[in-house]
Design a protein around this nucleic acid. Structure first.
Lengths: 93, 93
DNA sequence: GCCAAATGGTTTATATTATAAACCTTAGTA
DNA sequence: TACTAAGGTTTATAATATAAACCATTTGGC
């Protein structure tokens, strides 16, 4: 049986990747709301995805408030697609 | 976003459930080979699935050797199907 | 202007989980 | 008898996910 990329096989990280597959970019607050995660948890998981090169994380400001914008990288897209293929073999799809 | 049943969201347990969805029953040795897991790990995960009522685990003998036979329960099938549905929403399927 | 609360995070501690190592029991066998 | 192998289980450890505690800035009320 195929291996399931452990970096993607995590509910929160998968949720983030799933969202980023469908939008050009998304900011921290949006991801937090959509995934219903705590800020701490999200912050940690974004770091991991970023360290793996699956997403980029740009820390800037919007007006005077900080704003962190994330987007998926080509490697992220590729990893996600491979993960989906691997999963299919488990799910009978 | 839908919650992913944590009991099923584990590579080895998912692999076991996936196999059991496709066969009437499977013994310990078969599952170990198919999943390429260690016996210890498999034993632990089978216990968890069994405790949850997702599979039955019958410990008998074949000839003189012990033989543990597993099969999926209706609750297991239902849980698996719900898990698949939830996952689909993450995978764009 | 000053204090309280809110916003947008990060760091760190804890609880859970997955995994393998070590162990047990019985059977065959040299 | 004493080794080895088969088929597992129990337990210790490593990894992971998660939230609690914390920090910096900003905004609103008085």
């Amino acid at each position: 049986m195929k291996e399931l990329n452990p970096l993607l096989h995590s509910q929160l990280r998968l949720a983030v990747m799933s969202i980023l597959m469908n939008v050009e970019e998304a900011d921290f607050v949006y991801l937090k709301e959509k995934t219903e995660s705590t800020a701490g948890n999200l912050s940690v998981q974004l770091d991991k995805l970023s360290s793996a090169g699956y997403i980029t994380v740009e820390k800037g400001t919007s007006g005077k408030r900080p704003r962190t914008i994330c987007s998926i990288t080509p490697e992220g897209i590729s990893a996600f697609e491979q993960y989906v293929e691997a999963l299919k073999s488990y799910l009978n799809l």
